[in-house]
Design a protein around this nucleic acid. Structure first.
Length: 195
DNA sequence: CGACCGATCGTCT
DNA sequence: GACGATCGGTCGA
């Protein structure tokens, strides 16, 4: 198992990074409790030129400040007052690109994830949907700005190879306000054996 | 089943 | 003061 390094996150093509994150393991290690899931769904947010992005037009606020920092840092924010959504900042400082992790399949610490989510064993919705990802892994808005290069949250490769034929690209979810950018195929699903 | 709606609050205007 | 990069429960068919 190999933690992804800055060279992975700093790349300038956020769409490519979003695709490359499929099949990787998203790991949290809070208080010595390890939980991890395989990333099976991501969305790319292409910064200032992307109307769906929080940084569209160079918008710079306290909330999205970490997007303007270096890649390999978490950007977690609250949506609809209830859901904590986990993103990975990409690219080099000054370019506010990010990838939203929308779904994982549980791999390590499934019992803990079930407990955190209040779900029963066998529930297929565990880790499905961006709000459920953070709930299962214990990620909170307080974790925004933490580095994935050396912190409690990180992404690793376990050598799982993702074939191009197993990746499906579709428009992103819930961004109807983004005009033509809502049509961009920036959502990627990894479907090895269905879901 | 699918459609609808309520929850719930930080953030930006 | 309005509104989400959502979820899950409920209602009607």
């Amino acid at each position: 198992m190999q933690r992804l390094n800055y060279d992975f996150y700093k790349r300038s093509n956020v769409v490519q990074v979003a695709k490359d994150l499929l099949g990787k393991l998203l790991v949290t290690t809070f208080n010595g409790v390890h939980t991890a899931g395989r990333i099976v769904e991501t969305e790319a947010y292409a910064g200032v030129t992307d109307r769906a992005s929080h940084a569209y037009g160079g918008r710079h606020t306290a909330r999205n400040a970490v997007m303007y920092g270096p890649g390999g840092v978490s950007y977690v924010y609250l949506c609809y007052g209830i859901h904590h959504l986990f993103n990975v900042v990409t690219n080099e400082p000054g370019v506010p690109h990010a990838v939203l992790v929308r779904s994982i399949t549980p791999v390590i610490g499934i019992d803990v994830m079930l407990q955190r989510s209040g779900k029963k064993a066998g529930d297929r919705t565990l880790g499905k949907g961006p709000g459920n990802v953070t709930k299962a892994l214990g990620i909170h808005t307080r974790h925004t700005g933490t580095s994935l290069l050396n912190g409690e949250i990180f992404i690793a490769s376990d050598g799982c190879a993702v074939k191009k034929s197993e990746v499906l690209a579709t428009p992103r979810i819930g961004i109807d306000y983004a005009g033509e950018d809502a049509l961009l195929p920036y959502r990627f699903l990894y479907q090895a054996n269905g879901r």
